[in-house]
Write a protein that binds this DNA or RNA. Structure first.
Lengths: 281, 281
DNA sequence: CACGTCATGCGCGGAATGCGCTAGCCCCTT
DNA sequence: AAGGGGCTAGCGCATTCCGCGCATGACGTG
């Protein structure tokens, strides 16, 4: 069934496939950081795989923020990459920035806002650098880094146990700090969000925290780019109070947005510039 | 092209076309270094020129070694220096690393340690990446960043109000969190330290916090490189409990170290490698 | 006034990329 | 033990990006 003109390149059967790819990606990072620059062709030859495979590796490593993509290959981002840089390299950057820009415009100078962890909310923090006076409380390391040198913004870190994966804080310390504060607005991120059940996360600890965050604020926004809508990847859910607002990007299918409208959720669809793009409501 | 010493004259009125392109290239470098990454499309839109022109600019800037080319744009090749913080990391770097290495060797796997804010303690956090299992609680953003991707280290952030200057957390939230925990060791930084009065800082809020930190730990270390010893730049002081240890570098004058010996403080002088260098005690 | 220089815009060919599809292997379930 | 799900690798195609050459317009100079 397959064309047999397949090049007879003596690829041989690699004994273990999964660990092979994992090892290869580590090696790619190592090579790139030591030589500074590595080409796709070079890497394909060195590991005896096709260029497509290398490109997939580079795409993933780039999304993880461990490499920077160049035209014919990849380069190491020097030592400790700037948070803003890693952020921009990450996936769906345009959509996230658009969402962040719209969200930033909702914040009125003088307010106190609460920011969740996550890259989209981190982008919002970056936009809020120019809003002052402003008090920002957050459970996300990304947001703190974005505002670390914004002299005019008052930053409160809620503390807690650092989740390395999401770069956010959770746990009793976070909840105890939250219970002592209320906010004008809260901006929540999500691994996934549905109209009926709300926010879906990997751990119950995260969903409990998000529910608490939502309770402490007057207005609740969920920032989720298009691919986050309607999926059910995990089994921990955070129910949201009535009257919350979903902010997503114009890559969202109408069919993905409709259930939220039907459920009475205010939905805002924005383009990459942060302007409302969808049907007015 | 040959570089000429054309005065900046950035009066804004670029009536001449050459200075216009020159100005645009400078702006591209500035944008790229401040935001980390800039896309061709973005730049073309921002300057209202076509993508071709931007590509020509990027090609030249790349050839000059001022930018690095990426797939859809360009990135800064050196991480942009945060004026205040980078500088503090930069100065006396060797000494601080030596102090940090010695301090890291005092920590036993399985312990719970408390890290203060400050660049020296931040260097310690970096060294502790390889010590596990380990629980690290900290009031310093630098330490959190150093351990943000250290999967094997349990990180607790104490939270609080961010002081932009020192990149540390202070205030009621921090103190409330501290009161609920104790530690095997605490590593304190200092703007200055003297034998009689202890740690000197700019704000009473900081000294009160450091006193509290010292009370919560079995063993107290103060990490201060040579130029920090004996000065009295401010008027807020944190008194230290008996039995604390001063760790400094071999740039310290004997006369600067003597008062600490006389006051019964244990003094450790280390070289740039983190080995005890001074007179054995 | 004529000419050279420089920068910009536009179109083209070539290369690299991303995506969808298919096939093979591992592991878990039934 | 057989089957199915998940993951990975290879391949072809549409898209995007890049570099180059050419034409045009503006400025400075002789």
């Amino acid at each position: 069934m397959q064309p047999e003109q397949r090049p007879p390149s003596e690829t041989g059967g690699e004994s273990s496939r999964q660990s092979g790819s994992r090892y290869r990606r580590e090696e790619i990072v190592r090579l790139a950081t030591s030589t500074g620059l590595a080409s796709v062709e070079e890497l394909a030859g060195a590991f005896e795989v096709t260029a497509s495979t290398i490109r997939r590796d580079l795409a993933q490593l780039t999304a993880e923020g461990r490499l920077a993509r160049t035209y014919g290959g990849a380069m190491a981002l020097l030592s400790h990459a700037e948070p803003s840089l890693r952020q921009r390299i990450g996936e769906a950057f345009e959509a996230k920035r658009g969402i962040a820009r719209w969200a930033a415009r909702q914040v009125v100078a003088g307010e106190t806002v609460l920011l969740d962890a996550g890259s989209t909310v981190g982008a919002l923090a970056h936009e809020l650098r120019w809003t002052s006076p402003l008090t920002v409380a957050t459970t996300g390391l990304t947001s703190i880094q974005a505002l670390a040198d914004a002299e005019d913004v008052h930053v409160e870190c809620l503390g807690g146990t650092l989740r390395h994966l999401s770069q956010g804080f959770v746990g009793p310390l976070t909840e105890a700090a939250l219970e002592r504060m209320t906010f004008d607005r809260v901006f929540l991120g999500a691994d996934s969000v549905t109209a009926d059940r709300g926010i879906c996360e990997a751990e119950l600890e995260q969903t409990r925290l998000k529910e608490l965050m939502a309770r402490q604020a007057e207005r609740v926004y969920v920032l989720a780019h298009a691919t986050k809508l309607g999926r059910r990847p995990f089994h921990a859910w955070a129910q949201l109070p009535d009257g919350w607002t979903l902010v997503t990007d114009d890559g969202a299918e109408p069919g993905a947005v409709a259930p939220f409208h039907a459920a009475g959720v205010e939905v805002v669809v924005v383009d990459a510039e942060g302007h409302v793009a969808g049907p007015p409501d």
